[in-house]
Design a protein around this nucleic acid. Structure first.
Length: 427
RNA sequence: GUGCCUGUAGCUCAACGGCAGAGCGCCUCACUGUGGAUGAGGAGGUUGAGGGUUCGAAACCGUCCAGGCACCCCA
């Protein structure tokens, strides 16, 4: 077995079963994206390192991107995120695009990280952005998109929550309790990891940063104040908007949500399972200037990204991934023997032209083996056409799910097949 | 990139330094033109890889690989 060449660390093979699940996920993503009027787009998977260098200093690119020289010596990166690509694409056509524009994308990304549960080196990510609006209802819309997606895959408000905060509010609050501007970035980072450290360790880290004990107490009290959002005009409007959009129950204010990416300037949000046993499902926020780093005129927007790994782990754990079977609506046409091969081929072709999904057995193995094959593929129906049936112009039509069969005149085949396929398979 | 844990048949796991096994799954045959049953057979392993210790290693020791947990970061 070890003679088989290994796959690259942190990558996954998608066998038909996994591929079916991925395609199902993408179909849900596309469904909700289209429902809100978003258009699909994509960029290249290869980018020059310069695209990311604009945001130099960020760990995401310096430490976590796959970077290698191409044959001419130029440094190429496998895209670790889509936002810089999006920024370039928007900036290049800033004069012709219709703003605000609503774009979504689903594709592969790579990050050179230590793989563990919920984190791989190659993953797929849904990106969705509304670009060119500063209005709070744009923020509300993206959060509603996220909520409707979660609802669409069967998650209930008690299983998953979109936690929302606003960096402007936090900035104002930090000022109010007397934290100097230079200290704010470090304090924000500290807030971001409050749930990862024990209370006394966190307190000690806060004091080491330079906070005095009154500031520490004030900070802790504001982080536990779940009504703090009412002091923010933006967040008040946002939650009212979410109420009107019918997704309020999927959302909650959470002052501990900061998000790591620097370019968020307003609303920030992330979705988590309520048991807290998984990583963040999706994360996003409002940015003041998408295209500034790549040489365009300032353009605000809001967007989020969702990786395929965590959401699928969560859905799997809750039994929400539907059994997807490519052959569930297929008809299996058996081949009785060498002499019946032609008639089986004819019937197959006729059924395919009539719109059925038809597969046959290559060769003339004994019927039992052929039917077992059809059964294991999960085909819905099977045909047996032997000498007796040919002589009478009939076909044996088996309903593989109910384990029943009937003899039907050849002319009736399409009708009877359609009838069986229309029924829910009995389990 | 750091620390810790794990790795035995396709899957789930046994074997506490002494012949590498079970259940499920898989294949074949029977039930003489029919698939989730039953019965009878069978295949499948260099114990993640390559070293060391030992009379003897799946087990003990160090290296590498892979996965998981905590950091880091984030989807």
């Amino acid at each position: 077995m070890e003679r088989i060449v290994k796959s690259v660390k942190g990558t996954r093979d998608f066998y038909p079963e996994e591929m079916a699940v991925r395609r199902w996920l993408v179909s849900k993503v596309e469904e909700v994206s289209s429902a809100f009027g978003y258009q699909a787009y994509d960029g290249p998977c290869l980018e020059t390192i310069d695209l990311y260098a604009a945001k130099s200093g960020e760990e995401l690119v310096k430490e976590q991107a796959f970077v290698f020289p191409d044959r001419s010596g130029e440094n190429i990166a496998l895209r670790p995120e889509l936002t810089p690509t999006l920024a370039r694409m928007v900036a290049s056509r800033q004069n012709e695009l219709v703003f605000p524009c609503r774009w979504w994308s689903f594709g592969p990304f790579w990050r050179y990280e230590r793989p563990q549960k919920g984190r791989t080196r190659e993953f797929f990510q849904w990106n969705i952005d509304l670009i060119g609006s500063d209005h709070i209802s744009a923020d509300a819309e993206l959060i509603a998109v996220a909520a409707e997606f979660l609802r669409g895959v069967g998650l209930k408000p008690d299983q998953v929550k979109i936690l929302i905060n606003d960096r402007r509010l936090m900035d104002a609050e930090l000022s109010r309790i007397g934290i100097q501007a230079e200290l704010k970035p470090a304090v924000l980072r500290l807030i971001d990891r409050i749930d990862k450290q024990t209370a006394d360790v966190w307190d000690r880290n806060a004091l080491e940063l330079g906070l005095n004990s009154e500031q520490l107490e004030a900070l802790k009290s504001l982080l536990s104040n779940t009504d703090l959002w009412q002091q923010s005009r933006e967040l008040s409007a946002l939650f009212a908007s979410l109420e009107a959009l019918g997704v309020r129950e999927y959302t909650a204010f959470e002052p501990k949500i900061i998000r790591g990416l620097d370019y968020y300037t307003g609303t920030v949000f992330e979705a988590r399972d309520t048991t807290g046993s998984f990583r963040a499902i999706l994360g996003g926020g409002h940015y003041a200037n998408l295209v500034g780093d790549v040489g365009g005129r300032p353009l605000p927007g809001v967007g989020f990204a969702m990786g395929d790994v965590v959401i699928l782990l969560l859905l799997e754990s809750l039994g929400l991934i539907p059994a997807v079977n490519a052959a569930a609506d297929a008809v299996f046409v058996s081949v009785f023997d060498e002499n019946c091969q032609t008639i089986s081929s004819r019937v197959s072709a006729r059924l395919r032209r009539a719109g059925f999904k038809v597969l046959t057995y290559p060769g003339t193995e004994k019927l039992a083996k052929q039917l077992k094959y059809a059964d294991r593929l999960g085909a819905r129906a099977a045909l047996v056409i032997g000498p007796d049936e040919i002589a009478r112009g009939e076909v044996v039509l088996k309903d593989l799910a109910s384990r029943t069969q009937q003899v039907v005149p050849e002319a009736e085949l399409e009708n009877q097949l359609a009838r069986i396929l229309a029924q829910r398979p009995a389990l």
